[in-house]
Nucleic acid binder design. Structure first.
Length: 479
RNA sequence: GCCUCCAUAGCUCAGUUGGUUAGAGCAUCUGACUGUUAAUCAGAGGGUCCUAGGUUCAAGUCCUGGUGGGGGCGCCA
């Protein structure tokens, strides 16, 4: 018999029909005459209830069925006699596909801590929380591709291994086939990279932006969606050494067009989740409220669905760095020196406490900050006429902080060249990038969206290690 | 990289000022129960108190190192 996935099975109404269902046992309950098995196959957060009449034969099979076991069940679709579900399966034949010894299987029908599950990352998708996150994550991947496809963007695969060591976004992981026990040296004692695989040093990419710009200056609108690697020793709940980034890049877009796109894209994918993932979002909402029930009222998060709808309802606040500094300098925590870093003058880099104040306390909605001082931003950002600021934009979300960083790019060859020289970036690694400003250069813009940070926001999770299947962080490479 | 907190049964945790045989709920096992919803009820088994030293008549409890983990900050997405 062909298997029916639980997601579809629960919608069926043709009672009396023979059906096959396969999945993993969540709980087993045995009474005097009948046993109930809650079976989940991951197609939905919901379980299907398998009803087993007790007799000598079924009692023998039930001895092998515990939480975590994999079953194939043939039975009859029936209207449920019990409360809590509309349909259930009256089992005719149960095959145990894979047992799960209860003395060894670590997951129990109870709440586990996220820390414990992180150490059982190979099994954690069998929990409701992690399967819900996985489904929401998938929906967000799909929605992002759909959004860009529907808006005439082309997806570009930018390289994962790069010869450029100056992408300007952070520390890089080196890629080499040299024998580290016996590194070939040049006459003056340095590593002889001519003997390495590429004949020169190679790294894992920290951003596909520079290559994305090349494509945008031919295809008009492109986006990348790929893995990104940062070798920074960051130990926080919002950083990974390997994460996924979406980087659209658009010719003929100025900073305002860029902001419009970022806001529209974020609202589209949030709406997509509300339209397509409600079961999972409701579960995640309950989970979050359960988690926070011991917190004081003012420290609790807004309910998840309400929070997502709230972001859709209002336009994001847009203000310049200069205006933000004014707001912060006039703010209570700054005047009373409650900030760890008190803002004293224009030019200060904003810390996460300042970003959170603007988003969570002052404006109480997402904020796009623009026109930052050139000194605290990357070399490729378009310089403003004031000679001090650049056309940068950061989208700040409550709890997450910076979810998007982007800018209008400097399209003027001389200005870009001067900036590269000022920052001592080797011209030899940038010649191809500079050539785009030499031939048919046009104003263009783009941004990077940290995908896992978006998933944090969508799921109400608080640690980025819980929204990616296999988190890579300093000193952590078990799975 | 900096600061801070934690480690007790398979899991979540309690364990008073250092003091006899280290406890609870869930899980497991046995039994009861008219169809249960993380079922319920009764009972049983289950411990290298992370690890190595130290202080003390006495250490789960105090001190030092190590290991593992959480949180905050910086860097950023």
């Amino acid at each position: 018999m062909k298997r029916t996935e639980i997601k579809y099975l629960l919608e069926l109404i043709d009672f009396g029909k023979d059906i096959n269902v396969k999945g993993w046992v969540r709980t087993k309950r045995i009474s005097k005459n009948v046993a109930f098995i809650a079976l989940n196959d991951g197609s939905t957060i919901k379980n299907v209830q398998i009803v087993v009449e007790l007799n000598k034969e079924t009692e023998k099979i039930l001895e092998h069925i515990y939480t975590g076991a994999a079953l194939s069940v043939d039975g009859v679709l029936t209207e449920s006699l019990g409360k809590g579900q509309k349909v259930e399966i009256q089992a005719k034949n149960i095959v145990v596909l894979g047992e799960a010894n209860p003395e060894e299987y670590p997951l129990q029908p109870k709440k586990h801590s996220l820390e414990f599950l992180r150490e059982k990352a190979h099994l954690r998708y069998r929990t409701s929380t992690f399967s819900a996150i996985a489904r929401v994550r998938h929906a967000m991947i799909f929605a992002l591709h759909k959004y860009f496809n529907d808006h005439n963007f082309y997806n570009i695969h930018t390289p994962i291994i790069t010869g450029s060591d100056a992408e300007g976004a952070g520390e890089m992981f080196q890629v080499t086939t040299l024998d580290l026990e016996n590194v070939p040296k040049t006459e003056d004692g340095k590593v002889d990279y001519r003997k390495d695989f590429f004949g020169k040093p190679a790294n894992l990419t920290v951003s596909g932006q520079l290559e994305g710009e090349l494509a945008a200056l031919a295809l008009s609108k492109i986006y990348t969606f790929g893995p990104t690697f940062r070798a920074e020793n960051s130990n926080t709940t919002r950083h990974l050494a390997e994460f996924w980034m979406i980087e659209p890049e658009m010719a003929f877009y100025d900073l305002n067009d860029n902001m419009d796109l970022a806001e529209d894209m974020l609202k589209y994918v949030i709406r997509y989740a509300l339209d397509n993932c409600m079961d999972d979002l409701l579960f995640l909402s309950k989970r979050q409220q359960e988690e926070e029930k011991n917190k004081k009222a003012e420290q609790r998060s807004m309910e998840l669905i309400e929070k997502l709808q709230f972001v859709l309802a209002e336009p994001f606040v847009r203000l310049t760095y200069t205006e933000a500094i004014r707001v912060l300098m006039n703010s209570k925590p700054n005047k009373k020196k409650r900030f760890q870093y008190v803002i004293e003058a224009w030019g200060a880099d904003l810390q996460s406490e300042h970003e959170r104040y603007l988003v969570e306390k002052h404006f109480k909605r997402p904020v796009i900050l623009t026109d930052y001082p050139a000194d605290i931003k990357a070399f490729y950002m378009k310089q403003n006429d004031d000679g001090k600021t650049v056309k940068a934009m950061d989208v700040l979300f409550p709890q997450i902080g910076e979810i998007i960083g982007g800018s209008q790019r400097e399209e003027n060859y001389d200005k870009l060249y001067k900036r590269i020289k000022e920052l001592n970036i080797p011209e030899s690694s940038m010649w191809w990038y500079l050539e785009t400003r030499k031939f048919g250069s046009v104003p263009h813009s783009g941004f990077g969206l940290g995908f896992e940070r978006l998933i944090l926001f969508m799921t109400g999770m608080t640690n980025i290690r819980d929204v990616i299947p296999f988190p890579r962080t300093p000193l952590n490479l078990e799975f």
